[in-house]
Design a binder for these strands. Sequence first.
DNA 1: AGCGTCTTCGGAAACGTTTACGCTCGCGCG
DNA 2: CGCGCGAGCGTAAACGTTTCCGAAGACGCT
Lengths: 354, 354
Amino acid sequence: MTTIQQLAEQSGVSVATVSRALNGSSEVSEATRERIVALAQELDYTPSAAARTLVSRRSHVVGVVLETGPDHPDLKHPFFQEVLVGLKHGVGAQGYDLLLFASERPGNGFGGTHSYLRRAEHHGVDGAILMGFDGDPEIARLAASSLPCVAVDADLDGPRTGYVMSENREGAALAVRHLHELGHERIATVTGWLRTKPGADRLDGFREEVERLGLEPRDEYVVEGDFYDESGYRGTRQLLELDEPPTALFAASDQMAAGAIRAANELGVGVPGGLAVVGFDDIALASLIQPQLTTVRQNMQALGEVAAEGLGRMIEDSEAAPVRRLVPTELIVRVSSGATEAPRAKALESEEVD
Amino acid sequence: MTTIQQLAEQSGVSVATVSRALNGSSEVSEATRERIVALAQELDYTPSAAARTLVSRRSHVVGVVLETGPDHPDLKHPFFQEVLVGLKHGVGAQGYDLLLFASERPGNGFGGTHSYLRRAEHHGVDGAILMGFDGDPEIARLAASSLPCVAVDADLDGPRTGYVMSENREGAALAVRHLHELGHERIATVTGWLRTKPGADRLDGFREEVERLGLEPRDEYVVEGDFYDESGYRGTRQLLELDEPPTALFAASDQMAAGAIRAANELGVGVPGGLAVVGFDDIALASLIQPQLTTVRQNMQALGEVAAEGLGRMIEDSEAAPVRRLVPTELIVRVSSGATEAPRAKALESEEVD
DNA sequence: AGCGTCTTCGGAAACGTTTACGCTCGCGCG
DNA sequence: CGCGCGAGCGTAAACGTTTCCGAAGACGCT
C-alpha cells in the first residue's frame, strides 16, 4: 500500500503538496499536480479512509440501523430490500457508502449493551438511516442526538432527524374508492401492524374514505393483522364467517392479500367474484399471485432515494431543516378487484407505462 | 466525544494504561482497570474506529460487493436479501459490521474508475463477500488479491478466496426424481441464466438425473431462461406447444415456476393436472402462489451465515485455507407437483417443522 | 546482601492524513 | 528602486489509538 509520503518522496515535494494536489486544492500549480496525479496512478495509490476520517471528521459513510429481533420485521421483509436498493443508489450518487450495523459484540472495551448511538459515534458515520422499529428507546436516543438522521416509515423527529413515508392515508383511500366505484358497499379491511405508523395510517385512510363515501362504518369490518400473510388468512376467514360478510376487502399489505385469497378459496368464495381484494405495496411478486393482485403501489425504491437525498442535504448543510417527505402512492388495477372492463389489458397497459 | 486522553487525565494514569485496561490486557492491575472502566462508563466513552483502524490495521468491517448494472440481478432479487440476513447474523456474531459499497464517486483524489479492490483497500475492510456477478474482471482482481474473500454462488477462487454454494446439482436431481416417482416420463426444464454457476449446475443436475433414471434425454425439453418469471412464462409456452409436450417441468427458480404456471393456465393446461411443476429456491412467497409451489429449498440464510463464518476464520487465521462449502438443499412438497397423498397436510407439516 | 524476575505502569513512536501557518519567490506598481 | 502582494510550496501540529521499550518497585532465591 503506497502512502502519501511515498508519493511525496518520489515526486520531490512535501506531503502537504501531494495532499493538496489530490484533493483539487487551487494552491498548487497545474504542472506539479499533473506530475503527482500521474505518479499516483502509476503507484496505484489509494488514500486511507481511516486516516482521512480521523483528521477531517468526515467518514463519507452513512449508517443503516434496522431494529432486529423476534418481534420485529427485520430485513426479511421485501419492503426493506426495495428501500435498500433505493438507498444504495441515492447515497452512492452523493459519494457515500453504507454501513450496516451488525456487530453483536458489546460497544467496546467494556461490557454494556450496544447502543446504536454509540455504534454510530464509534464509526464516525456522517448520518444514519433508521428503519423497521416502533418506539425503540435506543432509536429514540439516536433521533434525539445531533447526528443527521432520516427515518423511513416512522414519524420520528428530532433536532436533526426527519422522516420519509409513503402516502399511506391517500393510498388506502384510493383502494376504498376503487372498490366503491366497482359497486361495493360492504368493504372490510385487514389492517397492518397498528403499532407502526404505516399500519395506523392505512387504517385511518380506510376509515376516512368509508365515511366520506357515506358508507356505513362497521367495527366488525375492521380486523387487526400484522402485515404478514398468515394474519391475512385468519382475518379473512373471520370476516367471511360473519352473518353479513363483506363483498370487498382492503388488505394493508400484499402478503396479507395473498393470505386473504387463500382463505377465500378455501371457503369456496371466488376472487374477485365472491370477494374483491385490493392489496398494498405492489411487491415484485404481486403479479405472480393468482388472480393477479390489484394493489396500491408504494414506490419503495423512491422512498430510499428520497431518504438518501434528504440525508445528504442535512449532512452537507448543517442549517438544513430535517427532511419531511411523503411520496405518492398509485393504484395498480389488475384482476383481484374485479374491475369489469378488460382488466387484463388494463393491467398490462399500466405496466407498460411504468 | 470523550477520548482516551481525557480518561487518562481524569484517572491519573497514562493513555497506555487506559488503552490496556479497556482492551482487557493482562498487564494492568484489577484495581486500576475497574477504576478506568467505571470512569469510561460515566463519561460515555466511545473509542474511535478510525484511529484504531489506522494503527492496528484491523477495521472489524467486512465489505459486501454485489455487482450491479443493467444486466445484473442487482440486489432486487429476493435471493440477495435472504443471504444478506444470514450474512448480517454471521458477521455480527463475530463482531464485524457490514459495509455496502455504494459510492459512485471515482476512487479518490483523481479520476479513474472505482475498482472494487481499491474501495476495499480504501476502507481497510478485513475481508469481503462477493455476490451477483459472472466473470466481472473487477471482481476477478479482487479474488486474486490477498484480501480474504468469500464468493456466494460463484466458483471463484484465489489464494485467499473461497466460495459457498447450494447443492444445485443434487437439488435439481431431487426435483427430477420426485417427478419421476410421481410417474412422469416426459420431464422438461426451463434453465436459469447459464452464465451463472448455479444456472449451469442445475441444468447439469437435471441432465444427469434424467440419464440416471433411464429417461430419454430430449434437446427440445431444455429451454434456456434467466431466473426471472417472464422467461419462465415464455419457455413454458414454447414447451407446451411442442408436438409431444412434457407432462412435468422443473423450473430452475420459483419465479420462473410462477411464470410457468401462468403460461399453463393461459393455455388451458391445469397445474398439476396437465403439467406438474417444481421450482427452486423456496422464496418466502412460494407458498402464496396458487397452486402452492413444490420446490427445492435452498437455505439462503444459511448460505450467508456459512460465508460469514468462513470469512471470519480466514481473517483470524492467515494460514486458514479458503472456505469451500456446499450447503444442502431439500425438497419441499406442496401442491404444484401433484403429489398424490394428502399434499396439503404434508405441506403444512413440513412448515410446522420449520 | 545481591541478583534476577515478575508485575504494573509511563514515555514515545507510529499509523496516514489534513490544514494552519509561514516562508520565498516573482511581479506589478508607485 | 522599494514595497506589497499573491502564488506555490514546506513545516509541523493535530486527530485518537496501539504497542514497543523501558523503568521502578516488590519479591523470592542463593
